[in-house]
Design a protein around this nucleic acid. Structure first.
Lengths: 111, 111
DNA sequence: ACTTTACTTGGCCATTTCGCCAAATAAACT
DNA sequence: AGTTTATTTGGCGAAATGGCCAAGTAAAGT
């Protein structure tokens, strides 16, 4: 892999990784409706506030989100509306049953 | 997060994670031109053959790729053409300078 | 100045991911 | 049957990621 290609891929990966987590993805989707403050997002994903904050930092660092502090609250919003078509693509792939079942893993009924 | 939302996010994440690596991303992009065998892909990313094979398994398990064995070679191809618009979206985000520099990380000039 | 509310940061441990090596499989050739 | 070529699988250590707790910051209220 040439270093130019590699560098381009790494920049992309930063963005993609920022979406590669259920809580982050749920937040990104919710933010398509408009800005939300951290406590609202915390309620959405139901995790510890510090965890949510770190997830938001990951997405912000990747250039996905903008933040703005107003009063005591911090509001986050999407930087790019193009996520919609991206999710459609991902969903069309996610809809299909995957080819091979994960080996030596039973149904994770609990979590 | 309701369990329905969570399940939907997890299915998406499987697909997204499959793209969240420089080598896998480079291979996915290359495969937009048409099918390639593992040894070609190995040359593209310049990693150990076993490593490449495992990356391909990840993408196949996620439903991104199809495989077909012909003779001694195994050919992989994309299952979905919609990746193109996805990459455009990602690139438009990747192009912007990220908000905050990664702390305590120098330029990884070597690797 | 002190408290409260909203959020971020640091630290630590558990889990996952990555990459190499060695070994296994599988088709084609001799 | 034995060898070569192409690829997958198992295993293991190293690095990255995720989540909780505790501590820090910062605006607003008293």
């Amino acid at each position: 892999m040439t270093s130019a290609l590699k560098a381009r891929m790494e920049r992309r990966v930063t963005v993609i990784k920022a979406l590669a987590h259920p809580s982050r993805l749920a937040m990104a989707e919710a933010l398509q409706q408009g800005e939300m403050c951290v406590c609202d997002l915390r309620e959405l994903v139901g995790a510890d506030l510090s965890t949510v904050s770190k997830h938001l930092t990951v997405m912000r660092d990747a250039g996905l989100l903008m933040m703005e502090k107003r009063g005591l609250n911090v509001y986050y919003r999407l930087k790019c509306p193009c996520l919609m078509s991206f999710f459609e693509c991902v969903d069309s792939l996610a809809a299909q049953p995957t080819k091979r079942a994960k080996r030596n893993v039973g149904a994770p009924a609990s979590k």
